[in-house]
Design a protein around this nucleic acid. Structure first.
Lengths: 146, 146
DNA sequence: ATAGTTGCAAAAGCTTTGCAGTATG
DNA sequence: CATACTGCAAAGCTTTTGCAACTAT
């Protein structure tokens, strides 16, 4: 069973549990995100759907993205001030992001230390963590050369 | 010499070096941020200035905030989707933030591990770091009790 | 004197909302 | 068939921009 099929199955189940309707738009958007891959914003996604002659509205794109974030199929990323991107999350291991402020490129990286930090926070500050966001900004290798 | 005086001195120097004018509005905004303390957004700051009968415009508040971030006197924080807050940074040691998604409260915490992560990124990924943002979201002690 | 800055209001950009029509369960 | 969901366009919010007036140097 491929990742996309697992995602669709999970979405179907969640929609059922929540008493929400299984509309074709919702599945089309999920499929598009998983097929495209990478990081994309709401407008990108909307245009991609339009270009393929899907009849979807911006409102539905925004609503569905929010829903997909809620059921953990998509992660919402916030970089800098007004850059919001989304990425598929099923089958992805935990990672954080490096953002090049010159060329805008986004790289992923992993460091288990963040897990230790989170454990420390839960234990000593008595804070119940739902999620985190670690972004490191600077210049990527290519931009440093120039 | 108090923190605020150091901040003013630093700002004066930076403005001089950059050939920018030392306008009363710029210093008034800097003073307001350091006097108020805590986390505040652009609109808060604008209203505070207005209430004290300062004659400043929103544009100047935004421009000056950006300038203060550039000269490292103020840090810009981005929480969730559309929450941008600013905090004074002179005399503050490095820290990150815990954001309660129920009551909106923002707590600060320190963990030296983030420095190790940054060193690792610089060394092994060849990425030149300028700054980072680590936000942990969840429920604070008070909200967990309810 | 002369640019850099400011205030004001309009514009821009992204996201949400209202409403009438549509289609899921 | 009832009503959750959709498309469309208008409205909302925060931030930016354009321009005439002002002022630091």
């Amino acid at each position: 069973m491929s990742i996309i099929d697992k995602a669709i199955a999970h979405f179907t189940e969640e929609l059922g549990e929540r008493g929400l309707r299984k509309t074709p738009e919702r599945f089309a958007i999920l499929r598009e995100i998983y097929n495209l891959g990478g990081h994309l914003d709401a407008e990108d996604l909307f245009m991609h759907m339009k270009n393929q002659n899907y009849r979807v509205s911006r409102a539905t794109v925004y609503n569905t993205l929010e829903l997909l974030v809620e059921v953990d199929l998509v992660k919402k990323l916030q970089f800098g001030n007004n850059i919001t991107l989304f990425e598929k999350s099923l089958g992805y291991k935990q990672h954080d992001h490096l953002i090049c402020t010159k060329c805008g490129r986004v790289q992923e990286f992993c460091d288990p230390r963040i897990q230790q930090t989170k454990s420390m926070v839960e234990e000593f500050i008595d804070f119940e963590i739902t999620h985190h966001s670690l972004n490191i900004y600077g210049f990527c290798r290519e931009c440093r050369k120039k």
